[in-house]
């Protein structure tokens, strides 16, 4: 069992008063890549959102664990720090916060260490270049006025 990274057991999830996941089981081992396919409304997004802890989805039964640790009792930020990452279909626009300062705050909170701004800038610049993004994006407000593709790129950056 120690090789299992993510285990989902008999998961029930409700959104807007209707049950969408009715006892889902899933085991993902270390190093594996899984693709979940299904028609619209099958519950693919619901599964991802519920695992991350989106407050719009209510887990009504079952359990989920990451590295053997229970996920469902954790806050969203604890899940993220445990290593769970959700790439959003539609990243939310947050005016007034620059992409750079957001990524820095997130990193600081995850590692508990203060980050030296200059070193961090250099790193950000390198990653932006590898993604073929203009440096200017680092100082723009998070996702505001970004196109669909541009919104997705910072997701990779993070």
């Amino acid at each position: 069992m120690s090789e299992n990274l993510l285990t989902v057991n008999n998961l029930h999830v409700t959104a807007n008063d209707s049950e969408i996941l009715k006892g889902l089981n899933l085991t993902i081992g270390k190093g594996e890549t899984h693709v979940i396919m299904g028609p619209n409304g099958a519950g693919k997004s619901t599964l991802a959102s519920a695992l991350m802890g989106d407050p719009r989805y209510e887990v009504t039964g079952g359990e989920a664990a990451l590295n053997g640790e229970d996920l469902l009792g954790k806050t969203v930020s604890e899940r993220a720090r445990a290593g769970l990452f959700l790439s959003f279909q539609n990243p939310v626009e947050v005016p007034g916060i620059s992409l750079e300062s957001f990524v820095r705050t997130a990193l600081e909170q995850r590692t508990g260490e203060k980050i030296k701004i200059w070193n961090f800038r250099k790193e950000v610049k390198a990653v932006l270049e590898s993604l073929d993004m203009d440096e200017e994006y680092a100082s723009r407000d998070l996702n505001v006025g970004f196109s669909g593709g541009e919104k997705k790129k910072p997701e990779i950056l993070q």
């Binding site: 802890g53 930020s77 939310v92 909170q109």
Partner: peptide
């Protein structure tokens, strides 16, 4: 927005402070 910021490891308190200062 709070959920989005938290899903990147930012605590709820920090997420709210970030949004207000923004």
């Amino acid at each position: 927005a709070v959920f989005y910021l938290m899903s990147r490891g930012v605590s709820e308190e920090e997420a709210r402070a970030l949004i207000v200062s923004g």
